[in-house]
Computed example of a mutant assay.
Amino acid sequence: MAGSSAKKTRNLDRSNWIAAARKALVENGITGISLRRLAEELNATTGAFYWQFSNLEELLEDVRQDWAVRNTAPFTEAIESAGADGWQQYLAYVRVLVFEEEFDPLYDNAIREWAHSSPRTAEVLREIEAFRIEQLQSVFHALGFTGRAALIRARVTYFSQTGYNAMQITETFEERLENIPYYAEVLTDRTTLLELTTSSEVRQELSGNSGRS
């Protein structure tokens, strides 16, 4: 048993500690991250931690950067993969947001809560949120909106997303899908999705399997 634990400790790298800290942050907030608790979670020694990090703050900075990449890159990749068509970019954005296969809204919530007590976390949060709004602004530019119209639609889209996540609105996944056409109408002025009458049709549209052009 001791040999097994020693082997596990030797195999740990920075990503293991970051993953454990991410889990603790999401589940218990920043107070849930302590060296002792992380070591227990990983069945490791505190000495194993110091092979990877100089101190706990170094790990916390890695968690901030992990969030910045993990919860933003999926949107960037989806939008870029959609090509130059603004409507396809918007649908790609919504797909990542709704399906939550790569984006974790609880991670966003945990970072925002942490930012209340950490100036450095607040700084990273501001930078990433500014980037996300700018990204959405480019989507609305591609949809044909210009100037302040594109900016305000980007802000409203992002603010509604963050508010939705923070409030943890109670609705079934099917209900959420059925609401998407109405959000799209308000945010983009397009009524295309209102032709869809069931959650399965909306899912197919977002997945690109609807056969519609």
Rank of each mutant, 00 (worst) to 15 (best):
T76A: 15
S200L: 15
E175C: 04
T46H: 10
E175K: 09
I30F: 06
A184M: 04
S207L: 13
A92F: 01
A68N: 06
T9F: 00
R10G: 01
E195T: 14
F145A: 00
E201H: 07
G29L: 04
S207Q: 09
E171F: 13
L42C: 08
A110F: 00
R95N: 06
T121H: 02
F159M: 11
N16A: 10
L177S: 02
Q65Y: 10
S81Q: 12
E80D: 13
V69Y: 13
E41F: 09
N16V: 06
F103H: 02
Y182M: 15
A142W: 04
L196M: 04
G211P: 02
I30S: 06
L194V: 15
G147R: 06
A142E: 02
F49W: 03
E61T: 13
L151N: 08
I152H: 10
E171Y: 07
L97R: 09
R155L: 09
T121D: 04
V202F: 03
T197V: 10
I128K: 10
F103M: 01
T146L: 13
E123T: 06
L193F: 06
S5D: 09
E27Q: 09
S15A: 13
E41H: 13
L35H: 06
T121Q: 01
W114E: 00
T188A: 03
S213F: 12
F145G: 01
E102F: 12
D13Y: 07
R132F: 12
F131G: 05
R36S: 08
A149I: 14
V186R: 12
L38S: 05
G144R: 13
T192Y: 05
E205Y: 03
D85K: 02
A48P: 05
L193H: 00
M167A: 12
V69N: 13
A78Y: 00
E61V: 14
E201D: 11
A73E: 14
E58F: 06
A19G: 08
D104V: 04
F131R: 12
T45M: 05
A84S: 11
L194E: 13
D85W: 05
E178T: 15
E171N: 15
R10L: 05
V202T: 04
A20M: 02
T121Y: 00
I111S: 02
T170F: 14
Y107R: 04
T172C: 06
Y93C: 03
N55T: 09
E113D: 07
E80I: 15
G3C: 13
G3A: 14
V156P: 01
E102Q: 10
Y164W: 11
A48D: 04
N11L: 12
L151I: 12
V98W: 02
S4D: 13
R212P: 01
A78T: 04
T9R: 00
N179T: 07
G208L: 07
R203M: 07
F75P: 01
H116L: 11
G29I: 03
R14K: 12
T197H: 09
L97C: 08
T162R: 14
E40I: 10
E201T: 03
